[in-house]
């Protein structure tokens, strides 16, 4: 497949670099400032060094580049809330010219699911977005395999940063601020960690799960969201005395979408440690399914993107 990659952050960059390894060809690569197009295959390494030196992968306007020849658009620009722009417009451009779309950007699927599905219905192209939930973990394809009607609920740990902080606080008896700075030093938390520690990121993933399970109906505004910022070490100690611990748990159930710190058994399935993610699916006839793995990171998320690209072949 000829792949157009929009977004050259950790994920977009990894998709471009790993595409050949998955038998795909990158014919367009764009960042927020410019784009490069080559029908014979973009020289990814050269484009990325150009970005390093000049701030952009190429000189072409992104809107012009979106009109070039390709089979599938990989949308990997940063997630934005509300109108989910500019990601949504990129997706629209691709679907209106009957190309497939693979999303790593959560915005369009979480905030404008119905708009996205409408565009898809009017297009010969399909939309897949495995990478938006749980990074490398094949959550959405598992739901697709079982059929959304056979999954009654989904829950899990869907933010590695928050999980790292809670598990370090528990293991070392340190307070939130201390562990947060450590996480920032390690590159596990961003300079502004709000998106992760306030539960927004996990909520977007659960909103997407809710949309997939119930064929739409949810956006971030419909989710009940609590973060972990004000969980003191003493709460984790008290939980531990009782054989429990606290994890930031997201749920998509028929009752709605909810994210918040919850008590779980400390040796239970959901009490994953570090940046690990886990998703638990309740099935109608096959009991409970647990899938865990790396929920973030460039190559990890790119592998989910490239699996979607292969599904579209």
């Amino acid at each position: 497949m000829r792949v157009a990659v929009v977004g050259a952050g950790a994920v977009g960059r990894s998709v471009a670099e790993l595409a050949a390894d998955y038998g795909q060809e990158v014919t367009m690569l764009a960042d927020s400032r410019g784009a490069v197009v080559d029908a014979d295959g973009v020289d990814v390494a050269a484009a990325l060094s150009r970005k390093e030196a000049n701030g952009s992968v190429g000189d072409m306007e992104v809107s012009d580049a979106l009109a070039a020849e390709y089979d599938v658009l990989v949308e990997a620009t940063p997630t934005t809330l509300g109108d989910a722009e500019p990601g949504f417009s990129h997706v629209r451009a691709a679907l209106e010219s009957n190309r497939h779309v693979v999303l790593a950007n959560k915005g369009p699927v979480a905030e404008r699911y119905e708009d996205l599905r409408d565009l898809e219905h009017g297009s010969d192209g399909d939309v897949l977005f495995e990478a938006t939930v749980g990074g490398a973990i094949p959550v959405l394809s598992a739901i697709d395999d079982f059929g959304p009607d056979h999954i009654t609920a989904a829950r899990g740990v869907l933010n590695g940063t928050a999980n790292f902080i809670l598990s370090r606080m528990t293991a070392e008896g340190l307070d939130y601020d201390h562990v947060l700075s450590e996480a920032q030093d390690l590159g596990v938390a961003e300079a502004d960690p709000s998106f992760d520690v306030e539960g927004t990121d996990a909520a977007l993933k659960c909103v997407i799960l809710g949309n997939v399970l119930h064929d739409g109906g949810y956006s971030l505004a419909d989710a009940t969201v609590e973060g972990i910022r004000d969980i003191p070490g003493s709460a984790l100690e008290l939980a531990a005395e009782d054989g429990q611990t606290i994890r930031l748990i997201g749920e998509a159930t028929p009752d709605g979408v909810r994210v918040g710190p919850r008590l779980v058994p400390e040796n239970g399935t959901l009490a994953v440690t570090g940046t690990q993610n886990i998703v638990q699916l309740e099935t109608t006839h096959a009991g409970r399914l647990n899938i865990s793995g790396r929920g973030a990171g460039g190559p990890e998320t790119a592998s989910a993107v490239l699996s979607d690209v292969r599904r579209l072949e």
Binding site: R155, I231, A235, Q244, R262, L263, P265, L270, Q280, R288
Partner: peptide, 12 residues
């Protein structure tokens, strides 16, 4: 006050 609730399902 902040309440940390148990996860009723799926925690075993």
């Amino acid at each position: 006050l902040r309440v940390v609730e148990p996860l009723a399902e799926g925690s075993k």
